[in-house]
Design a protein around this nucleic acid. Structure first.
Lengths: 206, 206
DNA sequence: TCCATTTTCGCCCATTTAGGCGAAAACTAA
DNA sequence: TTAGTTTTCGCCTAAATGGGCGAAAATGGA
């Protein structure tokens, strides 16, 4: 429920915004008054208080430059997030490129402890024993850092994007498929190998 | 941007809503006045005009019972849905009861072909081979009708709520755990047995 | 055409809010 | 401690809004 602002109020809010952008700190009431042509700081305060009542900013009492903007991000963004579903990964490309984002899904943040940055569709049943099936959408928290035993999204040889459990022993990296009938991947040292991120949740379509 | 209503206004809006539900047509200004204890229809009109200004309804000029509600349907509801996550199921209780709804999650509708009515947390690993693990949240499409081979949410003996693959042969119902080490359940004919619904998607927390 | 129903118009008052003023209080740095 | 900066308080006015009144206009059926 966003309450609408008067023109005075939105001008003031806009000025505060731009001031923070330009100077890195909030303006004083006096500076706001100067910019908007309001002689009395107390009048400015009145408006700033109104903006606070309308949920657009907060005031740190008695503190100079104590105005903090509230990042509005409509009520939904507060507890849900939008995740891009990226398609098949081709060689060399960065994970993110406009063309590969097939669509975006919105889900409650509560679902994830580790916040995913995107979703990938799983191809193949090599992780069946981890409860990850063909067609599942896996959330990936993009990071190159992974520890032994974690489920990771990795890219081997530049074009094969896989979800595997990482085994790292004696400086040997192994990607364990964790399903019978699949063989572990021992990355060829001459091939590119990159950890794209960590497993962070799963969505299965019905 | 939804503008907030005064209490008078929301009462009037609520009455209009319920009147349309009950009678199939909008009330006259006089009827609204009667219900809310406002003597003058013109006063009612004032409020109805306010509601129009706030985008909650429209008025067909000079037309009797000419109030039309605007179905707000926030842009989000269009492509996401809210699902209650229900807790452990106790004996005899209906699936839905306020106390058992632990929280609600919002997810994109696109995720589901068969629309789930609620989510249940899976206890135990009896469906590991179906890719359903302990702690997963399973979407359930509430229906008593299931066919052979479908994954169902069922209640056996009144208190055991389980997710199983349904086998139905020669009028014998079997719930197949689909994991080694678990035995099929052959419902005891003297026990209650009810299919609560069909598997409709899965969410795994990270 | 006439009449009952229903909507619309003009007017009223009380409360809230916007917008502003001067002065007091609080903070900060010398 | 003292002076300058900045925030806060109390008070004021005008406009907008909420909530209401009685009467006039429009509508539709008999």
């Amino acid at each position: 429920m966003t309450i609408q602002l008067t023109s005075r109020q939105s001008n003031i809010l806009a000025f505060i915004h731009s001031h923070i952008e330009r100077r890195g700190q909030a303006p004083t009431l006096d500076e706001i008054g100067d910019a908007l042509g309001i002689g009395q700081v107390s009048s400015v305060l009145k408006h700033v208080r109104s903006l606070e009542a309308k949920g657009r900013l907060t005031i740190q009492p008695n503190q100079a430059r104590g105005i903090r903007l509230v990042h509005e991000a409509d009520p939904l963004d507060a507890d849900t997030m939008e995740l891009p579903l990226v398609g098949r990964i081709a060689a060399g490309e960065p994970i993110f490129s406009e063309e590969r984002v097939e669509r975006t899904l919105r889900v409650s943040r509560w679902l994830f402890q580790l916040q995913p940055d995107y979703l990938v569709e799983v191809i193949g049943d090599s992780m069946r024993d981890e409860g990850i099936l063909n067609g599942d959408l896996v959330g990936v928290h993009a990071t190159p850092v992974a520890r032994h035993g974690q489920v990771v999204a990795a890219r081997v040889g530049g074009d094969r994007f896989t979800i595997k459990r990482l085994y790292w022993k004696d400086e040997v990296i192994r990607l364990l498929p964790n399903s019978p009938g699949y063989h572990p991947i021992d990355p060829d040292p001459t091939e590119d190998f990159a950890i794209e991120g960590l497993f962070a949740g799963l969505l299965r379509r019905s």
